[in-house]
Computed example of a mutant assay.
Amino acid sequence: MSRLHLSTLAARTLAAALPLAALAEPALAQSPSAGGPALPLMVAQSGSGTSYSVPIQTLLFFTALSFIPAIVLLMTGFTRIVIVLSLMRQALGTQAAPPNQVIIGLSLFLTFFVMGPTIDKVYSQAWQPYTAQQIGFDEALERAEAPMREFMLKQTRESDFALFAKLAKLDASVKADTAPLRVVVPAFVTSELKSAFQIGFMIFIPFLVIDMIVASVLMSLGMMMLSPVLVALPFKLMLFVLADGWNLLLGSLAASFAT
């Protein structure tokens, strides 16, 4: 991530949503006929495809922008990262520290880091040739889909894919590489949820041990009115800091994605 300039990062992130950005391509100019509308809906139609007027393309583009959060949530590593960080906060028992804004922002930029190689492939293989008018929209869409599919399949368990392939009634000869995205995406999300909760379980264990020890000590001393959670909090924070918890947690999260 450090080698990418901020503007390059933004361009390559937008390239991952190539079908959405491509809708804003300027339409072909055509003079309106006498008595016709000043801004026609369809500007040109030929064997190579159909071009729409600028207002229609603008409408389609901003409508398609609403799908970007779904793409980030369901086709990247964002889901696993944000769940693990949320579980870490619950394990610490710090309630609202770090706040939701910090967790979401950290998850977003860690997702950019993890998805960097995939976004680079989409940018170089699909976005650049398309903007240079070397390939058409359909071919650019296929090229953009390939790196995203490759990333998702590396994180998807075979059992999860088999489940959704069975529910979709796909032929047994259909493999994950050729399966439609309507099967690959839910299988990927299911695997991500499993991975996130497995990592969260491992995070909870040391903090749970501290809670049990503190609760046992307070019970033996007869301090029934003193909250074990309040007493255990500084010990859990001390353990997390001394173990360099942020370094271990974020490093393990980034390394958990098979590349």
Rank of each mutant, 00 (worst) to 15 (best):
R12D: 04
L110T: 13
F201G: 08
P234C: 09
P117H: 14
I56W: 07
L39R: 08
L230A: 15
L108F: 12
R149V: 10
P19M: 14
S46P: 00
Q57A: 12
F257R: 07
G116H: 13
S159Y: 10
L170H: 11
F161E: 01
A187E: 00
A258G: 12
P19K: 13
E142S: 12
M219K: 11
P180D: 02
F78G: 03
L218I: 11
F240S: 00
D138Q: 13
I103N: 03
F61H: 06
I213P: 01
L108P: 00
P40E: 10
L167F: 11
R3A: 05
L181V: 07
V214T: 13
A243E: 03
K175V: 13
V231Y: 03
I119C: 01
M212T: 04
F204R: 07
R157K: 15
P180Y: 15
S66F: 13
P186T: 12
L248E: 05
K175C: 05
R149D: 00
K154D: 15
P26W: 13
M225E: 00
P37A: 14
Q134N: 09
I56R: 01
L39P: 00
L110C: 04
L233A: 14
S220P: 04
Y123N: 07
T118Y: 03
A29P: 01
F235N: 02
E158A: 14
D244E: 06
I83E: 00
A146M: 09
L193Q: 00
S195I: 08
S53N: 08
M212G: 00
L108S: 10
A140G: 08
A10S: 12
L167P: 01
P99N: 09
A176C: 07
Y130V: 09
L18R: 02
M88R: 07
T8H: 07
F204M: 14
V43H: 01
A27D: 07
D138F: 15
G105E: 06
V84G: 03
V184H: 04
P69Y: 15
G222K: 06
G245W: 05
V43Q: 15
E142V: 11
G36K: 12
Y130R: 02
K154E: 14
G222V: 12
A144L: 04
D177A: 14
P19E: 12
V102F: 08
D138K: 15
T131Q: 13
L59E: 02
M152V: 11
P26M: 08
P186S: 08
G136I: 13
Q133S: 15
P180I: 15
Q30K: 12
I83S: 04
P228G: 11
K175S: 10
V114C: 05
M219I: 09
M202R: 10
L6A: 11
F61M: 04
H5Y: 15
A168V: 10
L181R: 07
T178V: 14
F137E: 04
S227F: 11
L163A: 15
R149S: 05
A16R: 01
L92V: 08
P19T: 15
A196C: 10
A70M: 09
S216Q: 07
F201H: 10
A196T: 11
L41P: 01
L233P: 00
V241T: 09
A144G: 13
E192N: 02
G105D: 06
